[in-house]
C-alpha cells in the first residue's frame, strides 16, 4: 500500500522535474520582459534532438551535451535579434504572437532536416533504476532533479546578488526608468533569451533519456511547463520548481488512484481551484496595483 504510494510519488517527481525545467525558461523571459515565450518548448526539443545527433555522430557525452546547450543558446539569441528586437516597442501580446511564429519555424526546420522519427538517448549513469522505500526511481530522474535544483539556486543568486540579474529585474519592472539609470535594456532582453534557451536546452538534454524526443516534443513540454509556471506564480524560480513537481505528482496520483483515463483532468481541475483562490499563483508576492 505504502510502496504503491511511493511508486506513484516517484513517477510524479520524475515527470514533474521535466515540467519544472520547462517552467523555469518561461519564468526567466517573463522576468526580463513580461513576455510569455511560446518558443520555450522548441528550445527544450532542440536540446534533446541535438544531444542525440551529436552522440550518434560519435562525440563523447559531455561534449555532446555542451554543444547541445550552446547551439540552442545561439538560436535563442538569433530569434531575439532577428524577430523580437525589431518590434521592441510593440505590445506584449504582439511579441507573444511572434514567439509562436518562431516556434513553428524552429519545429518545421527540425522536422525537415532531422526527420520525424522519435529518438532515444542513453541514461547518463546506466539504465539500472534506484530502489528507495520499496519503490523504484530511474537514475536519470536524480540527474534531472539535481540539476533543476542547482539551476534554481543559481538563478536565485543571479537575480538577487548580481548586478546583471538586478538590471534584468529592473528592466522588467519599468523599462524607461531602467534606461534612465543607465541599464542597457536591449542587452537585457538578449541575455534573457540566451539564458532561457540555454536552460531549456539543458533541460531537454536531461529529460530525453526518460521521455524520448521528437521534432514535436516541445509542444507538450511547453504546455505543461507553462501550466507549472502559472501555478507556481509567473516569474518565480522556486514557484516554477514547486509548480512543475505539483503538476507531475498530481498526474501520477490521478492515474494511480483514480483512473488513467482521467489522468490529465486531475491536475487541471486542481489547478483551476488553486488559481481561483490564489489568482497570482502559489509563490507570487502580493503586489498592490496603483490606480
Amino acid at each position: 500500500m505504502l510502496t504503491e504510494f511511493f511508486q506513484y510519488l516517484f513517477s510524479g517527481i520524475t515527470v514533474g522535474a521535466t515540467y519544472a525545467m520547462a517552467a523555469l525558461g518561461f519564468t526567466l523571459i517573463y522576468n526580463a520582459s513580461n513576455v510569455i515565450n511560446f518558443a520555450q518548448g522548441e528550445f527544450i526539443m532542440l536540446g534533446g534532438m541535438l544531444a542525440v545527433l551529436f552522440t550518434q555522430a560519435g562525440l563523447p557525452l559531455p561534449v555532446a551535451v555542451l554543444l547541445a546547450v550552446v547551439v540552442p543558446t545561439l538560436v535563442g539569441v538569433l530569434v531575439e535579434k532577428s524577430v523580437i528586437e525589431p518590434v521592441k516597442g510593440a505590445d506584449t501580446v504582439n511579441i507573444i504572437i511572434i514567439t509562436i511564429g518562431a516556434s513553428l519555424v524552429i519545429r518545421g526546420l527540425v522536422q525537415v532536416t532531422l526527420g520525424k522519427n522519435a529518438r532515444a538517448l542513453p541514461a547518463f549513469s546506466g539504465e539500472a533504476p534506484v530502489t528507495l522505500l520499496g519503490a523504484v526511481l530511474p537514475s536519470q530522474s536524480l540527474w534531472v532533479i539535481g540539476v533543476t535544483a542547482l539551476v534554481v539556486a543559481g538563478l536565485w543568486f543571479f537575480f538577487n546578488r548580481t548586478m546583471g540579474g538586478k538590471a534584468m529585474l529592473a528592466t522588467a519592472i519599468n523599462r524607461t526608468a531602467a534606461q534612465l539609470v543607465g541599464i542597457n535594456t536591449a542587452w537585457v532582453l538578449t541575455l534573457s533569451f540566451a539564458l532561457s534557451a540555454g536552460l531549456g536546452a539543458l533541460g531537454g538534454v536531461l529529460v530525453t533519456p526518460i521521455t524520448l524526443t521528437a521534432y514535436d516534443a516541445g509542444i507538450m513540454l511547453g504546455l505543461k511547463g507553462f501550466v507549472a509556471a502559472v501555478v507556481g506564480g509567473l516569474g518565480n524560480g522556486m514557484g516554477a520548481l514547486v509548480g512543475g513537481l505539483l503538476v507531475g505528482v498530481l498526474e501520477a496520483m490521478g492515474a494511480g488512484y483514480l483512473s488513467s483515463a482521467y489522468k490529465d483532468a486531475v491536475p487541471f481541475v486542481l489547478i483551476l481551484l488553486i488559481l481561483f483562490f490564489m489568482p497570482r499563483g502559489l509563490f507570487s508576492a502580493k503586489t498592490t496595483e496603483r490606480v
Partner: peptide, 20 residues
Amino acid sequence: NETYGPKDTDMGPQLTKIKN
C-alpha cells in the same frame, strides 16, 4: 484495463497498478 496518452512520458503509475 488501463490507458495512457500518446504523448505521455511516464507510464509508471499504470504499470504499478497492473503489477499489484
